[in-house]
Design a protein around this nucleic acid. Structure first.
Lengths: 212, 212
DNA sequence: TCTTTCGGTAACCATACGGTTACCCAAAGC
DNA sequence: GCTTTGGGTAACCGTATGGTTACCGAAAGA
């Protein structure tokens, strides 16, 4: 937990703050905002509870920082896909696959979003950071759709925002509701085979829809 | 709150239980399982906290009953659509529209599902009632897809389960993430105009995908 | 070397929480 | 009419929770 190596004071503080943030992501993801325990976060971070309040002020401010962190992380990876330079169909397929796989790899993203929606985006609404992350993404989708339409491989009436929301929905909903869907349909939807099948289906749906 | 009309004892008990259940749906939907307050539920129901424990045993058993209730309610309305007798394309379109609108009309359904998924369907997993509700639905989708394929209006390789999940995902994800999506994309996605636009898009996506 | 700064610890506090107990009283059963 | 039954009330209980205070000790700055 605690570092045995001697570090300058400021670096140690930074490291403690980072450990608290990571522990918070975990605790919030597993128990939600209300269910998360501040004591537990501090303990898991190998830090004292007071340091949590020194660095983050309150449980709710910590929650906001967690949200900003996970949003930024996802957008970073999404941007790294560099789909702007791909053939339109391949670009869309890659975005679809990435969104399914990212959600599956990062279940914390799902829970945090859901909680924040339950609170009507009360915390996210105050964050300018996150809003700034998403407008370039929408431009990107718009551009890919335009290229596809120009090349005659995409229908011309696809709305960028609706299309992006759909693209995310296809994968996100499946992963977000893995457990209840598995219970309701009595299937093991979390297996790698099932995930692969879903991936193929999602690509088919989006590209099928986009056909002219 | 309390009835002024005199009722036989058993009927009054039943009414109290129903009021508690309704208040619980509200409280759980607004605050989640951990965030919900038992005192608040009792107060809103105009009932004594002890009666909650008499009727439901514990907060968690109450949670399960709430889940079963909302699932059953949705399935009931969905079944009432009677899509089995419609033209395949109209049947699918109606299911898509219903799922978007139902979710929009019943935000409690979203939150309850999300919470239950966060808990890995721990409570729903123990319920046989809900599982029984969904197998006829899957049969129905299978049948509609088969009719569409036979009539030459649907592709032949559409999986019933994947298709149903997609159908629900299109609307559910949008409504479930209304607040964060609105914040991120800086748009008022909850307006009736936006909801209508989404509805049209969802139908386009599913029927577009199903084209042979 | 002396003082200040600041990351860190541990014990504490008021309150809110899920759940229970002791009791009441009117309808139901005889 | 008398007793039993059971829905209902209010006050209570142990504990867990978010947040704070008093204090420490070593690195940083002069």
């Amino acid at each position: 937990m605690t570092d045995t190596v001697e570090l300058p004071r400021s670096k140690r503080a930074e490291a403690t703050k980072a450990r608290i943030l990571e522990a918070a992501i975990n605790e919030f993801a597993n128990h939600g905002l209300a269910g998360a325990r501040v004591d537990e976060i501090a303990a898991r971070a190998g830090a004292n509870k007071r340091m949590l309040y020194v660095h983050f002020g309150s449980k709710e401010e910590l929650w906001l920082q967690v949200l900003e962190h996970v949003y930024a992380h996802k957008r970073e990876e999404e941007r790294a896909l560099d789909v702007g330079n791909l053939h339109p169909q391949e670009a869309m397929a890659r975005l679809v696959r990435f969104n399914l796989r990212y959600t599956a790899r990062h279940p914390e993203f799902v829970t945090l979003l859901n909680q924040e929606n339950m609170h009507q985006a009360r915390y996210l609404g105050t964050s300018e950071r996150v809003q700034a992350l998403y407008s370039p993404l929408l431009d990107l989708v718009r551009e890919v759709l335009a290229r596809g339409a120009a090349a005659g491989v995409f229908r011309r009436d696809a709305e960028p925002l609706q299309t992006y929301v759909t693209l995310v929905a296809l994968g996100h909903f499946y992963v977000a509701n893995l457990h209840t869907l598995s219970a309701v349909f009595q299937a093991r939807l979390s297996s790698e085979a099932a995930l692969g099948a879903r991936e193929a289906h999602c690509v088919e749906v989006l590209l099928g829809y986009l056909r002219p």
